[in-house]
Write a protein that binds this DNA or RNA. Structure first.
Lengths: 213, 213
DNA sequence: AAAAATCTTGACCGGTTGGTCAAGCTGTGG
DNA sequence: CCACAGCTTGACCAACCGGTCAAGATTTTT
């Protein structure tokens, strides 16, 4: 059963409850938006009294901020693959794989991020201007190197990145629309694989990616 | 000046005010979400007293529904170009042009649509299941014909459509992020042209689009 | 010109929301 | 075993929200 034999320690209680609240908050913010998600609703999803939420997160905004920050970190982590590769076929291919996997496993997080950015990033604007900007410049440099090495056609790296983000995140943010057009059912394993392969093929072919000769 | 010489007629007043309210509502829903947009805020943006909004649109939801429906129709209209074309280069090319133009001119509408779909389409689910589904099936048939005619490589038409939607709408939904990464400034005419050309080139190249030989 | 229909608007209301608080409960260290 | 620090929670509150309403203003109809 779920009942532990010894009483939970303070640290365990805190970690457990914060995790519970953050999961419930991510799901609720994604489904209802910041304004539509009430603290009472998040509390119900988490299975805790509302006042308990305010013990761990003093305000709704502070809870929301934590959710967005956590998503951002997961999202950035997927980009490490980018650097380890020798060329666009491995690098961009692995990046698309990773982002499609995130879209499948954590659609709620992607939706919260999208909503935050659509509303002009009221709480993570500083991240956009620092971390994201730096990361983007770094990746642009990598792509420009690949182009200089003749490993792909000369395309504007910035718009290529936007295309990668747009296409992969679309499968999370618009999963409801995609499911509706799929006779109301979630994509099967095979359909996810085909989506990923189609995206990779079109983009890698589209930029003329090739191995070193 | 703005003052008309003769008093406005009933029909004119109604059209004028509905237009004013719908524009204010689209902007406000896009910026604040359904929950974050208050009737008072929309009224202020429209420059009308709040009670006047409720005279033209009895409930907040009915106003929101009208906004979403209007967007959907504009969005569908852009797709007529699709059919008039002989092959993917003209058809998809013109479709990308049209959708990029909409993303540039009406980003708010695209954001409202995205938000609605992300929240599992509470008010336009029936549209998704009827109009959008039919439209999608029709376009898939067109693409399959192009493939059969050897005008493009055999790619899954459904995922190609998702890619078109994702990529073009990204420039509207995430325009704030794009502007932030563009040293805080909106894209210039030249940058929009380059974005459109890059998207068209990667996708059309990626699917091996070619003219009839 | 007067009656009818439509439009305008400040004031108001019940319900909900984020947040507070004090009292009780539960591990922890001495 | 006890005192203290950290955790839990029902009850409560001021602020705000969507929506109502009645009285007045304006245009149309007769």
């Amino acid at each position: 059963m779920t009942t532990p034999q010894r009483p939970a320690s303070r640290k365990e209680i805190r970690q457990e409850n914060e995790k519970l609240i953050l999961q419930a908050a991510e799901k609720t913010f994604a489904e209802a938006g910041f304004g539509g998600a009430t603290m009472q609703l998040i509390a119900d999803v988490a299975g805790l009294p509302k006042a308990n939420l305010h013990y761990y997160f003093p305000t709704k905004e502070s809870l929301y901020r934590r959710v967005v920050q956590d998503i951002f970190h997961v999202w950035l982590q997927a980009a490490d693959i980018f650097d380890a590769a020798d060329g666009p076929i491995e690098g961009l291919g692995a990046y698309i794989d990773a982002k499609m996997e995130i879209s499948r496993k954590h659609p709620a997080g992607s939706k919260v991020w999208a909503s935050e950015v659509m509303h002009r990033a009221p709480v993570i604007q500083d991240y956009l201007e620092t971390t994201l900007r730096d990361w983007t410049e770094g990746r642009i440099a990598v792509i420009e190197r690949w182009i200089a090495q003749g490993l792909m056609d000369p395309v504007n790296p910035r718009h290529l990145l936007y295309m990668l983000w747009a296409t992969t995140q679309h499968y999370a943010d618009f999963n409801h629309q995609i499911e509706t057009l799929n006779t109301g059912r979630p994509l099967s394993d095979a359909q996810w694989a085909e989506a990923t392969e189609t995206v990779k093929r079109i983009i890698l072919t589209g930029i003329g990616a090739r191995h070193a000769s």
